[in-house]
């Protein structure tokens, strides 16, 4: 009994180092993709990269819950009572995002005024500041 406990802990430390390295690498890939996405014009490629980032996010979540929180080594029934209820999120995400998109399309179709407002360009904050300071200067003169 004593022996198995010690052996288990020895593996534990190795496992922690392995998972830390995996999490670090996944985060670095995520950040690299984030940097690559900056200023990218191709919308399809952007969406693909966002999809990859979400997959990386979920694998990070798997490593944290499975190894750091030790869920992978628990009894299967316990894993099921926690993971199965959370599966409802799959439906939540599809249903709510689809609904949000539909709401946007309906607004844009039936509320042309709002649609027009949302296509109006605004000046950059720094430009606004400069204009304001010019106005103040004029007023002072």
């Amino acid at each position: 009994m004593e022996h198995t406990a010690v052996a288990h802990h020895h593996d534990g430390k190795k496992e922690v180092i392995r998972v830390t390295i995996i999490l670090t690498i996944l985060t670095i890939i995520e950040l690299a993709l984030g940097f690559a996405m900056m200023g990218m014009e191709n919308q399809h490629l952007r969406l693909t990269i966002k999809g990859i980032i979400i997959i990386l996010m979920l694998s990070k979540a798997f490593y944290i819950v499975g190894y750091f929180m030790h869920l992978k080594h628990e009894v299967k029934n316990l894993i099921m009572t926690i993971v199965v209820p959370l599966l409802i999120f799959i439906w939540f995400i599809f249903a709510f995002l689809y609904d949000g998109n539909s709401f946007k399309n309906l607004k844009n179709t039936y509320d042309p005024y709002k649609k027009e407002l949302s296509t109006k360009k605004v000046e950059k904050k720094s430009e606004v500041k400069e204009i304001k300071t010019e106005e103040i200067k004029k007023a002072v003169d």
Partner: peptide
């Protein structure tokens, strides 16, 4: 698990609003 549902609800509300906004 219950806390995960709270955060999940927040993030899904965020996603829904983002999808519903021009």
């Amino acid at each position: 698990m219950s806390d995960a549902f709270t955060f999940g609800a927040f993030l899904i509300a965020y996603g829904t609003t983002r999808f519903a906004t021009n």
